[in-house]
Nucleic acid binder design. Structure first.
Length: 209
DNA sequence: ATTTTCAAT
């Protein structure tokens, strides 16, 4: 396995609310077949390809029809709006795959298209989506950096994890009305043909508030 | 067209 250096792990996976200069994404994958020993791989983005896309391609080549696969991802940034549908397609195409995704930070947490992607992932019956906690960072470090290297707990890891978890919960439980409000705020998702629907729903919202 | 974010003048 081409593992991760400890300092790279700590820098890239630190779950800061404002993660400056983490302008790349790391994905640590554990994949086991029929409950056997897990194969470990580390991916990151290359060129215009996202880490998820490269990893999916690798899985596509490795996976055989009848076997049962347990896949776990530890991601420094959560999947983008571009990758989420590809991940869902992959899992759909392989009914023998279960995918558990742990994320350190939420990528563009306020952008509705990215939020929608996460919502779709979390709603799939064979996909798990969670924010990493101390145990997850510890496990990821032990498996992908090396147990002997000693994981260093950083400042406010638990607090940051709890805040991200709260945001993810809000994202996955968000109602359609809230989505429209968000779209109007951020200027995303506007469809000229549906402007009247948006204003009608905002009118209803205003009346009920 | 940028914030902090799969980033480059």
């Amino acid at each position: 396995m081409n593992g991760m250096p400890g300092d790279v792990f700590t820098f890239q996976f630190e779950n800061l609310q404002r993660a400056k200069r983490r302008n790349e994404t790391w994905l640590c994958q554990s994949r086991s077949v029929n409950g056997g020993e897990a194969a470990l791989q580390v991916f990151n983005n290359e060129g215009s390809e996202h880490a998820d896309e490269i990893c999916l391609r690798e899985n596509e080549a490795a996976i055989q029809g009848a076997d049962q696969y347990e896949i776990t991802w530890y991601m420094s940034w959560s999947s983008s709006e571009r990758c989420a549908p590809q991940i869902i397609d992959f899992v759909q195409k392989h009914p023998n795959v279960k995918l558990n995704i742990f994320v350190s930070r939420l990528y563009y947490q306020d952008s509705e298209p990215h939020r929608e992607g996460l919502r779709a992932l979390s709603q799939h019956e064979r996909i798990g989506l969670k924010v990493m906690t101390l145990t997850d960072f510890q496990d990821c470090f032990d498996r992908f950096v090396g147990e002997g290297n000693g994981f260093q707990n950083w400042e406010d890891l638990a607090g940051n994890s709890a805040r991200y978890a709260a945001i993810l919960k809000e994202i996955t439980q968000q109602t359609s009305t809230e989505k429209e409000q968000r779209n109007r705020q951020s200027g995303h998702g506007r469809d000229p043909d549906k402007q009247h629907l948006l204003s009608a729903s905002s009118l209803i919202t205003d009346l009920t508030l």
